[in-house]
Design a protein around this nucleic acid. Structure first.
Lengths: 222, 222
DNA sequence: TACATATTTTTTGTATACAATAATCATGAG
DNA sequence: CTCATGATTATTGTATACAAAAAATATGTA
């Protein structure tokens, strides 16, 4: 599914702005495809909640701060639970994978002196990998499945640009706490640490959003 | 989306058995449609997790008891949280709706002397309505969205046929406890009651499955 | 007979065509 | 000038056609 990845990517990195209408024909032309595969991609994106159905066609979804708060609550609940379950069911292999992911994370953070696009993207990926391993270690395929579908809010993706070195280090420390709790089979501690970790991410995003709102009172686009 | 509802219905009530391959062309002929809308329906069902992709085409998913256990764990987590949030954020209108849904549930249970298809279907619907209202009262649209997508396992749907009058009454009692906890704004109590309620449902399904396994050692179909 | 390769058949993925419906624009009446 | 109604245009939903890939079958050889 190529059209899907293209459109999703364009939404996430902001080329398709919230509220923008997505016509099948124009997208098809842009992608040198026929409408058929574009249609399928759009249907998928609709199921993902990234686009919103209109009476005719769809438009890029606009996420409110309330949406972001709710999505983070959901993630906290699911990933917190996953962390606690991982503390119970993790294998030695799981622990090894977490260790590796965390080492990669550490390396990516320290490499990232300049806030260039590539190294930020790497941090996002490696961070995601760590969370992924934990969810995998929880041994609940259905929670894994749903977590993979928790809406990827574009603004959240881009929020990594706004971390400073201290915040990245803080984030790494929490990864270590979570990993230790899982290693020592302390489910409640793992859950709580994951909670706090994700809530810090949430607050970071919300603060960032507040700043934007204050500096650019309103720049809408239809 | 008519093809979607048709196929989903056929899977849920067992006309399309687990493992059965679903060809686009044959379904299109069965529905007097072209392949295009059938294709879209199948894509949807794939996103729902009701069919499983093969190298070519899809087949009806076969749920293991482990799947069912995991799905119920997920539901417990999400609906338990929803109940606790509902206890905080419920309006008077929410309470009224819960009351009404519960009254309907009570009526449906008592009407259901004979275990005929129609009255069972009504119980399923009204029960779902009660749960729906609670999730709505939690005021988190994203949790609502995900809960609506938690896999509808066919066997679970059909498990209502196997409730006896006592179990239905028990179920109603838990509805009442949950409702009271939400009314009195006791989040933790609401969460725990919802937990127990759903786990009882899970155990009912799993017991039912054990019986089937013992009585019909194995009747497979490809 | 058993296995490997070639050929046929089936089935999916994509493109295009057409019909139906919603949105837009234009025209005319009040 | 404004609103309503009708004509025009744009856009989606469905059907069909064709190409590409996979599965099934057949054929030949050891």
């Amino acid at each position: 599914m190529d059209a899907y990845k293209y459109i999703k990517g364009a939404i996430i990195d902001g080329r398709f702005e919230p509220g923008m209408r997505l016509g099948e024909e124009s997208l098809a032309k842009e992608l040198n495809l026929s409408r058929t595969p574009v249609r399928e991609a759009i249907k998928q994106l609709e199921a993902d909640g990234l686009v919103v159905p209109l009476k005719r066609g769809v438009s890029v979804r606009n996420f409110t701060t309330e949406d972001i708060r709710q999505i983070y609550d959901l993630r906290t609940l699911l990933e917190g639970y996953a962390a606690s379950q991982a503390a119970i069911y993790r294998t030695e292999e799981d622990l090894e994978r977490m260790e590796i992911a965390n080492l990669h994370y550490e390396k990516a953070i320290h490499k990232c002196k300049a806030s260039d696009l590539a190294s930020i993207k790497e941090i996002v990926d490696v961070n995601q990998q760590f969370h992924e391993v934990i969810v995998g270690a929880a041994k609940n395929a259905h929670i894994h499945f749903h977590l993979s579908k928790v809406v990827v809010v574009p603004i959240v993706y881009r929020s990594f640009y706004w971390y400073n070195q201290f915040q990245l280090q803080q984030s790494l420390e929490f990864h270590k706490i979570i990993l230790q709790a899982i290693r020592h089979q302390e489910p409640e501690r793992a859950r709580i640490a994951m909670h706090e970790h994700i809530y810090q991410g949430r607050d970071h995003v919300l603060r960032h959003l507040e700043n934007i709102k204050h500096n650019h009172p309103q720049e809408e686009e239809e």
